[in-house]
């Protein structure tokens, strides 16, 4: 069994209106050192071992459904864990 942690973020070239609003809010709270916030999504998947390579499967899942390649990038971490 694998535990996969996936991070989906807006591409650098795409404006993030939520992140901008949070940046402004932090600055208003006097955290002037915060210059940028990008908001993304975090997902955890439990995946059973199969004869397919886990990275191949996760790439496919992300490209197909979990991220929209037009505006989003993704990265992930794979951990082996004990199934239950």
């Amino acid at each position: 069994m694998y535990k996969v942690k996936i991070y989906v973020t807006l591409r650098e070239s795409v404006l993030d209106p939520q992140g901008k609003a949070v940046t402004n809010s932090l600055n208003a709270l006097h955290y002037q050192e915060v210059t940028d916030v990008r908001i993304g999504k975090y997902m955890e998947l439990k995946v059973e071992k199969s004869d397919r390579n886990i990275h191949e499967v996760i790439d496919e899942i992300c490209d197909k459904l979990l991220a929209n390649p037009v505006i989003e990038d993704y990265r992930y971490e794979v951990e082996e864990c004990v199934g239950h």
Partner: peptide
């Protein structure tokens, strides 16, 4: 693709 409205 669609993004959140600028005003949120």
């Amino acid at each position: 693709a669609m993004r959140r409205n600028e005003s949120l």
